[in-house]
């Protein structure tokens, strides 16, 4: 099977006056994948999403959706649907009419679109709530209505703009799992914007990390986690020790390296570090260490022999496990 690209960006920029919201972005989103755009606020991920939806036009560059140019194609003629951040349900319509709106606009006969809307509501486990007003629903339910309203149109790409941001933690985790299941079952390309690195890493097939309008790295969650391309990515994705490469014993002094906490181990022949904190997490212990002016985090298998804060511990690591990163642009 040849891989088709659902969305292609070639040198796409979107500038608002002097602000470069999106700056010369290249990316290829493959058909049927769950693609996350991850970054802090103002990094250009939402603008990129709006460029795909058609709410923004690129200042420069070229966008293709399934091989066809998106230039000058307004949102209402793109086979792409969006789940908005605050759901943007129509307040004057009931749930079923909200879901059926897209079909009504396309001129689908009433009986047929009502049936399709009820099916879509059943898909997101809201069967029987069709007659409610949107305002009468809880946050989680609104989220599902927004999802059904987009999916009922059978889009080839579904865009999700921080769809879980407004939900509480428990509901979030539940929806993360359901979104993933839904995406696998429907085989639709999902493009998901989030600022939550755990969410991006746990849900997606591939992740693009955005900063200041540019993509810093595109890769599978494992690649992003294990081999962050730049210091920014390592910092943002978190849970790695970011240290100078020469300090790690693995590269030149002008580069940064990432060293994962679980790769640090006690080593009698190693360097002497002072323990600054110690947290017992069941099977492992998380240690804060101070080593020759650098703060490090280490995760060690829980054992009686791990010293207490204030005491010293001789540590080392396999320099082959150290990942030297490219300089930030």
């Amino acid at each position: 099977m040849t891989m088709t690209n659902a969305v292609t960006f070639r040198g796409v920029s979107r500038h608002f006056g002097p602000v470069r919201a999106v700056d010369a972005v290249d990316m290829e989103i493959r058909e049927g994948e769950f693609f996350a755009m991850l970054g802090p606020s103002g990094s250009g991920k939402t603008t990129s999403l709006r460029l795909i939806a058609g709410f923004e036009q690129p200042t420069a560059g070229h966008i293709e959706i399934f091989g066809e140019t998106a230039e000058g194609v307004p949102p209402y003629r793109r086979n792409v649907n969006t789940v908005f951040q605050n759901y943007a349900l129509f307040p004057h319509l009931n749930v079923r009419d909200n879901v059926a709106f897209g079909l009504r606009v396309k001129g689908v006969p009433k009986a047929e679109r009502m049936r399709a809307a009820d099916e879509a509501l059943a898909l997101v486990e809201l069967a029987g709530l069709g007659d409610r007003r949107a305002g009468m629903l809880s946050g989680g339910q609104r989220q599902r209505v927004a999802l059904a309203r987009a999916l009922v149109n059978k889009p080839r790409v579904l865009l999700l703009d921080e769809p879980l941001g407004a939900l509480d933690l428990k509901l979030r985790e539940q929806m993360q799992e359901e979104l993933r299941k839904l995406q696998r079952a429907l085989g639709i390309t999902f493009v998901f914007v989030t600022h939550d690195q755990d969410e991006a890493l746990s849900m997606s097939d591939r992740v693009a990390v955005f900063a200041e309008g540019r993509i810093r790295q595109i890769g599978t969650p494992e690649e992003i986690y294990r081999r962050p391309a730049t210091r920014f990515v390592a910092d943002f994705v978190g849970s790695s020790n970011v240290i100078p490469a020469d300090f790690a014993g693995a590269g030149p002094a002008d580069r940064w390296a990432s060293l994962r906490p679980e790769d640090i181990r006690p080593d009698p022949a190693g360097r002497n570090a002072t323990i600054t904190s110690r947290a017992f997490l069941g099977r492992v212990v998380r240690l804060g260490l101070h080593l020759e002016g650098q703060d490090l985090t280490a995760i060690l298998p829980a054992a009686d022999t791990i010293p207490m804060p204030g005491e010293s511990l001789s540590i080392g690591w396999d320099t082959a496990r150290v990942h030297v990163m490219e300089p930030d642009a």
Binding site: A88, V105, R149
Partner: peptide, 22 residues
Amino acid sequence: DIAIEEAAQDLGARPLRVFWDI
């Protein structure tokens, strides 16, 4: 909320339709 007008466009409604229906 301007997003509800965008949502209507996203679902295929032309601008005039958005104005009348939403």
